[in-house]
Design a protein around this nucleic acid. Sequence first.
DNA 1: CACCAGGCAAGTA
DNA 2: TACTTGCATGGT
Length: 225
Amino acid sequence: MTVTLDEVYQQLYEDLGPQNWWPAESAFEVVLGAVLVQNTAWRNVEKAIENLRQSELLSARAIYELPPEELEELIRPAGYFRMKTRRIRNLLDYVFTQHEGSLSAMLKVDTETLREELLQINGIGPETADSILLYAAERPVFVVDTYTNRILKRHGWIEHEADYATIQAHFQTHLEADAQLYNEFHALLVRIGNLYCRKKPRCEECPLVKWLPEDGICTPPEEEP
DNA sequence: CACCAGGCAAGTA
DNA sequence: TACTTGCATGGT
């Protein structure tokens, strides 16, 4: 890799500016959004959260006490609504049984322990857990999503076989352990991915095009492993 | 119309 | 262990 992650970050930041993530008004909204956004456009998550807001249900206790069928209807626009209702409730079961219903108490647990605990919950995988750690608990944990994966592999910055843990370690090894940096970097990768690095890429206009291998346009050799 | 979005878990061989 | 499939709505 002839370009450093730091240079990539600088380039993205210059072109796109601060992304102001996570778009939420409370830590609870971040946690909720982290589940709702799984494989889903953020626009649809906004509708679900807005429904909950209008119903004054944006608190752990309110949703925990809400009948699941009602939660399903409110979050329906975010898709996978039955599954996500179960997942949110699984998470709240953990918050109430292990942290007396206090999200802020949960968020004070040390990073390694909390990550392990979150991963035990059915429906919370690595990206969701790390999103909570970075954007709700403000820990220096790099979030790897589908765009991060795609961008790094198409540029040849990591091997095609690299899995989540390997990619995450790559960022955390080459960058300072800085939550604010990880916050902005990941948000920028999602933004640039949305704009240019989709399944059907538009690399001509991408600010990262100068770092593509060869000289050509980014043609994905294969999709994600 | 087909495709895909800030994943994850369960099922199959 | 390594693939494959289901989950669901809404925008392009």
